[in-house]
Design a protein around this nucleic acid. Sequence first.
DNA 1: CAGTGAGCGAGCTTCCGCTTGACTT
Length: 959
Amino acid sequence: MAAATTGSTGSARTSGGSTRKPTSTANASGRPTRRLVIVESPSKAKKIQPYLGNDYVVESSVGHIRDLPRGAADVPAKYKGESWARLGVDVDNQFSPLYVVTPEKRSTVSELREALKTVDELLLATDPDREGEAIAWHLLETLQPKVPVRRMVFHEITESAIRAAAENTRELDQHLVDAQETRRILDRLYGYEVSPVLWKKVMPKLSAGRVQSVATRLIVQRERDRIAFRSAEYWDIAATLDAGEKATPRSFGARLLQVDDKRVATGRDFDSLGQLKKGSAEVVTLNEAEARRLAEGLQDRPMEVASVDSKPYTRKPYPPFMTSTLQQEAGRKLRFSSERTMRSAQRLYENGYITYMRTDSTTLSATAIEAARSQARELYGDAYVADSPRQYTRKVKNAQEAHEAIRPAGESFRTPGAIAREVDGDDFRLYELIWQRTIASQMNDARGTTVSIRIAGTAGTGENVVFGASGRTITFPGFLKAYVETVDDGSADQADDAESRLPELTRGQGLTATELVPDGHSTSPPSRFTEPALVKAMEEMGIGRPSTYASTIKTILDRGYVWKKGSALVPSWVAFAVVGLMEQHFGQLVDYDFTAAMEDDLDSIASGDDSRVHWLSGFYFGTDGASSGSEIARAGGLKKLVGSNLEEIDARTVNSIPMFADAAGNDVVVRVGRYGPYLERIVDGESQRANLPDDLAPDELSEEIAEKLFSVPQEGRKLGTDPVTGHEIVAKEGRFGPYVTELLPEPEVPEGAKKKPAKPKPRTGSLFKSMTVDTITLEDALRLLSLPRIVGTDPDSGDEITAQNGRYGPYLKKGTDSRSLSGEEQLFTVTLSEALEIYKQPKQRGRAAAAPPLRELGEDASTQKKMVIKDGRFGPYVTDGETNASLRKGDSVEEITDERASELLAERRAKAPAKKTTTRKPAASKSTAAAKKTTTRSTAAKTTPTKSTGTRTRKTPTT
DNA sequence: CAGTGAGCGAGCTTCCGCTTGACTT
């Protein structure tokens, strides 16, 4: 049984299990039974309504209506204090999820509630898959219908299918709902527990997730392969052979295949690192000299046809589109990004041109098959149409198949020409692609012949050689007439409709080589992922869903894990750091088979063989004994990995990506710093650093480029030369913001000196707030470098007073006594007497206290203290003099009410660490703080049973 | 990645899947 919902008053679990069959009999009031049908998509609702007639009201949920809270702002006040509020899942209490109606769905929900009032029965007709079942359950929980409820399922949107579905309803499948909920909670735990690890160890705002982390890993791994790649050279010989004047074509090309019974290496004999594969002992690799010598030796030698092998060639049409193949082909043929493809497809769908665009099925309905066949017949003739209808059942990993393939809508298809007036641009081109592919899928195989010829000869130097040539002729193009798939590298001669013709030859026939050209090749690195290629890889691995391929790509782009160079996806250095961390410390979570294993486990939950709580317990808390559970469960569970194991993760190591050793043998390392990636190496115990340019792809970082970067002094804008010292002055961005500094000439090493003289430190100075690196003048820079300025001497103490710029802005310094200055210009203008005047004032105790409140409020509800709004370093906050609480998103200084202010203060008080209670072990290291916090919180939750139980009790049996 | 002296209010970031408008310039 699925989770009882937190946040809703315990619902009748049986409401979905009404066994009453819908009838068409009249109800008590004498009118016919009215039914509300809820589907997921508004356009689907519109389409179905006329099929069902006036006794039905068809509405849509517009996808999911509830979800776990995204963050603190979504958590209802009632649960705010709970230890698990951040996760939205009470892990200590049977993993009870807290569901909230998604803010933008509130109006949808109230509309559905209204509609429900007018009917006698509810039919939940969400998609027939795991997510659809869950949406149906959420609708049930949220709407709390008083009328009977049934689950309606259909796989095809035709009148007969819809009517049949309305007559043959079933109960909600709680096991399937459980499987979905398990998936949802797993993803939440993974994402919300692992991401904070990245914030602590790498950079804030990064993210990890079951899908995005594996996608990122794929891209990083490919780049690593490219970095490790060493191009290898191999040679062969390209021959042009003459078959005699009667032959057509008379001459043709052939390539050297064998030398003395050993196969000549081709590209396929090299691995992804560019080196000859192991086990290729039987292969001979020719170098240039050998190839030249052999070509010469073959000059004017007789050749003869050793074999002619002719085979029939047939090629079946490609299956109709599903989301992933549509994105791939639109990417290759139209150069659309995944997002662009989906945006266009959405428009076509909404306007009734195509069927649903988020699908993992290649199935066509019977009417669609008929439409495609009749249109193919019309356009190309009977011979081109397949003898019998073709159904494509190629199973995609983890496919849910809730929808049809993507095809032109309707019972007869409109040709691209027919819609050209209504649709243009991207939409037209995409429709054309879909239309062609659909038509082609019902056409006949392409047929032809492939011929493979071997030609033997002996070189003057004694080697026996074999040349090979192959040809393909297409005698009947079949479906190729309508649609040819584009190959990844864009080469036309690899395409399915490519032809190459050979003359008719017979065994033993003599040939002469008119040309023998030694031909050099070099292996090239595996190419980077493009968007379509990544989508294909994800689909093959079963990670991500049709509705998320495009958004996953967007996510990894947004996080800065990946950037686009043309159409190639290039990983950032941050991605290297994050993937490295994940592989090292969360290996099970980024395993390429993790999702596949999860899907199997979800299947056993869906079938009732496993339970949600049992599975999640293993995942989160680990399992004893190695006999059962997932990899992560055996490793002790996620909680341990993000908790006590955290201190094992060394941030410095994680953020260091070793590259290579330079000529002197020093290791060159890329470091991912707070302010971007930079190179570092240690030379003679001294650290050398260099910024990495943003547009340098990791695989382009060669030793040569590294040396160049090291040799360039830290870039910065050159402002000119200091007339006094002759030093060049530059402005650049630094750790503490923009600053100016001088470039000192290399100190001369005196003859015979044992040690290098100590490097003199260059002068530096932070820019004023009014200045920028791009606009600062040499004059300003020299003024900044002149700081600190000696203002004068305190006549009382004899101490020197200086004016300088610091971390908190401009200030005066006299020994250890300091005073802030009000403006940066004052650094140059303040006089000794003004300075002494300032020193007469007592030291300001905190700027916040000195600043007047932004607004005054009434008394706090609980403490009866006066509340005021103040502006602080972190923005406006409310204080009652004791407790301070920042205003949240949505609160404004002008509009906040006393009630809201009190609420914020109360929340803050509740969160404040208990001051007098425990005196725990001091000096908790930064990395263990999180783990500790969790412990404290869960204890608190247990000691206040009234809060953590109540409406949230669940009946799920524990396994 | 430059290096200089206070004391003070943090809160938020993040996942995967299902669906489309409603916003602003």
